Amino acid sequence: MTDNISRVALVTGGSGGIGRAVVERLALDGIAVGVHYAGNRARADETVTAVTAAGGRAIAVGGDVADADAMSAAFDAVERKLGGIDVVVNTAGIMLLSPISTLELDDLDRMHRTNIRGTFVVSQQAARRVRPGGAIVNFSTSVTRLQFPGYGAYAASKAAVEGMTLILARELRGKDVTVNAVAPGPTATPLFLEGKDQATIDNLSKAAPLERLGTPEDIAEAVAFLAGPARWINGQVLYANGGVA
């Protein structure tokens, strides 16, 4: 594995929430980072500015994760401007909640396009490009085990992510590239908190034995572990949830 000074990462959904925390944590380890955004270039530029102000290297790259051409171009840009790709972290995702009986099928299609097709497209590019000694980290959810009502379609999309992640790890035999998924529990991000009243948030904050919600920085630590020193962890789902399940 190359030293971190010459390592390069691409983080999808890297302009906010968990994605931004991952970008900043990897940069802290000396990794140059491509900060991917889907629609908000200004937030990506803010993240790049924060990284560079702290002495790191970062660029912004855009595109729909479910669009193969757009993601190929994003990977090309990171390789051209930063010198290659060693780590791909796929945090991009959407969460639309409803009981299965009432979920709009258009919402199902939107979520699955981003969470399943998007993860597949990014994983496909990563499998072709990540250099030996590198790592691919996808994102699942602890709800695949917690079975919260209202999360059926979202959990289904993330169960698909787990399936493709574990198989890709086996398909990359001999490449010296690890492939794992991180499955956060309740984490205080805008995506998670949106639409929840305070009582619901308070109840969820007590679900873990540590009696608090996770933070984006908590999840970023797990990613940094898998992206760097955890070379003997491969084909696994790491539940980063404070012991909630």
Rank of each mutant, 00 (worst) to 15 (best):
A21I: 13
A21M: 13
V22W: 07
V23L: 06
E24K: 14
E24I: 12
R25K: 07
R25D: 00
L26R: 14
L26Y: 14
A27F: 03
G30T: 04
G30E: 05
I31H: 01
H36K: 01
Y37M: 06
Y37V: 04
A38I: 02
A38W: 02
N40G: 03
R41P: 02
A42H: 05
A44K: 03
A44V: 04
A44Q: 02
A44Y: 04
A44L: 00
D45T: 09
V48T: 13
T49P: 03
T49Y: 00
A50L: 15
A50W: 12
A50D: 13
V51Y: 01
T52W: 02
T52L: 04
A53H: 14
A53D: 15
A54T: 10
A54G: 15
G55T: 13
G56L: 07
G56Y: 05
R57M: 12
A58Y: 02
A60N: 06
G63L: 04
G63W: 02
D64Y: 01
D64Q: 03
V65H: 02
A66H: 04
A66R: 00
A68S: 14
D69W: 02
A70N: 10
M71T: 08
S72K: 07
S72F: 00
A73C: 02
A74N: 06
F75P: 04
D76L: 07
D76Y: 08
E79C: 12
E79Y: 06
E79W: 03
R80M: 05
L82V: 11
L82H: 11
G83R: 07
G84Q: 06
I85R: 11
D86T: 10
D86H: 14
V87Y: 07
V87H: 08
V89H: 13
V89I: 15
N90Q: 14
N90K: 10
G93D: 08
M95N: 09
M95R: 06
L97P: 12
T102S: 13
T102Q: 10
L105N: 01
D106S: 14
L108N: 03
L108Y: 10
D109K: 01
R110V: 00
R110S: 01
T114F: 02
N115I: 00
I116K: 00
R117V: 06
R117L: 12
G118A: 00
V122W: 03
S123H: 07
Q125L: 11
A126R: 02
A127D: 09
R129F: 14
R131P: 02
R131E: 15
P132T: 11
P132E: 13
V137C: 10
F139L: 15
S140K: 05
T141I: 09
S142C: 12
